[in-house]
Structure formats: structure tokens, C-alpha cells
Design a protein around this nucleic acid. Structure first.
Lengths: 121, 121
DNA sequence: TCTAAAAGTTAGAATAAATCTAAATTTATT
DNA sequence: AATAAATTTAGATTTATTCTAACTTTTAGA
């Protein structure tokens, strides 16, 4: 656990939003100006592989990262792009059932209009 | 409907697999050596927007395209990467229900080992 | 403690997917 | 046929991410 990795993990832990690698890099650079983009990616990848954090694939833009709590899926606002979490504990079993064979997992993003954007319209 | 667009549509119609823009470009170039990558993207985007074909987002690699039949989701083999279709007509309603608010759609990829890869292990 | 190996970091180059630009060509319209 | 509109082309550009190779730290053993 290097200083860099600790910093990156802290940034993710203290963020209330999902952050892109670029955003993590920007925030990290404020506290450690010498940090390199490659280090951010190295650590995000390493921590993702180790299961400490989650990578969220976002169609058409950069992946986001979050400190992983319990497993959950994502809602993405089609208006502002913001991500929100949603817990669907029944889904994996239901999909396994529907598919017939065993499944190792799935990747789901639900498209909706978030409450804030809904108000504005 | 230009010659280029017609060619691209035919390639997708006659393919039994999901094709990346790159693969479409390669196949198109065989029959029309002057065709440009930008044309392939222009047309794939235009036909996707018009609903003639479907774009499938693939985590960590290029998007794929297919001649769109009825709505369906995708299985992706974690071993060979190949995509397969699966129809889950109940899912959207079930998700809407779970989320509470209206949803405009969703993007789902189920991870599994395809029958061919399963045999090999 | 000294030293060698291993692991991690850095800057910058490289790659891949997709888009943009501006000129040229094709197609459609009067 | 002349003009406008749309499309295509080649190549440059952008964005996200990975790679490379030199340099630092850290770790562990003699």
C-alpha cells in the first residue's frame, strides 16, 4: 500500500459521486502534484481486480470508479449523465433462470431521467 | 440510400455474427476499395439512429453492430468474447417496477461461458 | 547494515476507437 | 443545365487508456 494508492483510495472513499480516472487524477494532483496518470490507472486497475473498488462502464464516455460496497447496478440519467446506484438482489438468479446455463455475472445500466432533471422539464 | 450505405447494410444483413465498425470496414473494402472509415461510421451511426440496426456496447473493446430484429439482450462469453442474443421480454417492466420511476430503456450484457468454450474445458 | 531483487512510480510515447474537418464528389431539385 | 444539398473521402484530431523504459522506493536476505 503506497502513498499514491492510499490517496487514490481515499479520494474514492470520500467522494459522493462516481469518478472517472481523469477526475481522480485531478483530485490526486491537488494533494500530490507529482502523481502520474499511469499511476492512477495502475492503481484503479489493481484495486478493481482486487475487488476493493468497482469499475462502471459508461457508454460513450470514460469508465467511472467507486468505492465498492455491496453489489448493485446503475441508473444513468439520459439528460445529465449522472449515475445512481440501485440494488436488484433478485436479478442475477432470475437471469440465470432465463438463460438456462450458469452465468458468472452481468453488466446493467438502466436509462432514466433523474429526479433533478425531471423537475427542470 | 447511397451505394455505400447499401453495401454496409448488406454486410450486416448477411453476417451471422455481430461485427465491429472495423470489421464492417474491412469487408466493405473488399467490394469497394475506395470506401472510407468515416463513411462506415457515418452510416452505422445514421442507421442506428434510424433504428435499422443495433449498436451493442462491449466493455473494453469496440462497439458491435447487427441487423436489428426484435428487441433482445446479449450474452457475452468471458472466454472467447463472442456475443449471442437472448430475449428477455419481461425484463423492462420488471426493472421499471423495481426502480419506481419510468425508465426509457436499459443496457444489459450477461457474462457466461458459451457452449463451444464450455466443451473445450 | 549493505545490497540485490522486486515492486511501484514517472513522463511521455503509443494505441485504439471514434469523431471532426474541409475539399471533392455525388445526388437531387429547379 | 445550373445550383443546392447531401454524402464521401483522406487525413488530422480527440479521448481514454495502455505501454515503455528509466528512475525510486520498498523489502528481504546475507
Amino acid at each position: 500500500m503506497t502513498k499514491q494508492r492510499e490517496l487514490i483510495l481515499q479520494i474514492l472513499t470520500h467522494s459522493d459521486r462516481h469518478l472517472t480516472a481523469d477526475e481522480v487524477f485531478f483530485l490526486a494532483k491537488l494533494q500530490m502534484p507529482s502523481i502520474a496518470m499511469a499511476t492512477v490507472y495502475n492503481n484503479l486497475n489493481a484495486m478493481t481486480d482486487a475487488g476493493f473498488i468497482n469499475r462502471v462502464h459508461v457508454d460513450g464516455s470514460a469508465d467511472c470508479f467507486e468505492k465498492g460496497s455491496d453489489p448493485h447496478d446503475h441508473l444513468r440519467c439520459t439528460s445529465c449523465g449522472k449515475l445512481a446506484n440501485v440494488s436488484l438482489p433478485w436479478l442475477k438468479d432470475r437471469l440465470r433462470q432465463a438463460v438456462g446455463t450458469d452465468i458468472s455475472g452481468y453488466d446493467l445500466t438502466i436509462h432514466y431521467i433523474c429526479p433533478e432533471c425531471r423537475k427542470k422539464i
